[in-house]
Amino acid sequence: MAVNTGGVRREARTMMTRRSVRGDAQVPWLLRAVSCLDLTTLAGDDTPGTIARLCAKAKEPIRKDILKALGFEDLKIQVGAVCVYPDRVSDCKHFIGDSAIPIAAVATGFPAGQIKHEHKLEEIRQAVADGASEIDIVIPRKLALAGEWDQLLRELQDFRKACGHAHMKTILATGELGELTRIYKASMVCMEAGADFIKTSTGKEKENANLEVSLVMCRAIRDHYQRSGIRVGFKPAGGIRTAKQALQYLVLIKETLGDEWLDPSLLRLGASTLLTDIERQLFHSAFGCYPSACEMPMP
């Protein structure tokens, strides 16, 4: 199986010219994007204080008056998950309380994955024990780059076991895999190993999520589904900052995988600043004028 790069580029580019969501039609799309959002903070200076703020924003991602003006005040809108480093999981647990928002932890030596395999397994187990119900693991890139697919499969299966009841989201770090064919193959191995989601990037690579790799990964998900009947989710992450970009990903997924995938159980958008921009666009739909960023409560 080989991926034709030129074809993918063309398809990714023209898809956006063939479909358009504008004006008030954007509102349900943007609200859905919010409910699929993995509200993320992965920084060295994360503290319990900032996690508290993030969790509060996760519970109330859009200002009440905006939702009210749009007629969606009864929609109990929350983000898809909060995503943090393993050491912050217990803070999340404390601040998320009983609001049923899943806690996702990155693990396996995120972002580079350059630690011993046993340590990776231990990291996963500890995060699950602390309360994470989703684990975003990074794949060992060296195995993918060397084409050692069997070894990659075995290691991922170990991760799968360590996750236990928690969902496993596998980060391909596509920006470090070099070519689209390799991305396709790595996607397939991840799904074979039992991944619940495949995810593009850590947000720390030079090249993060883009429409081309997303298209390739979504096609892999489609192929895998057609073969096995199992629906695997997709999570583009890194570099998604604007509402417009979010809409593009939603369009791409709708066109490639269908409406079923436009749901938090099968789609997550990994982002930290995207929410503020979506909130601003919704403000515009609600009140007919453009807001200033400082009016949106910061996460």
Partner: peptide, 21 residues
């Protein structure tokens, strides 16, 4: 309370202090 609370955004005009870190 956090930034998204109305008590952190709206003027209360009374002896009510909301703390953030």
């Amino acid at each position: 309370l956090q930034t998204c609370s109305s008590l952190s955004q709206d003027e209360i005009f009374g002896p009510v202090l909301v703390l953030h870190t």
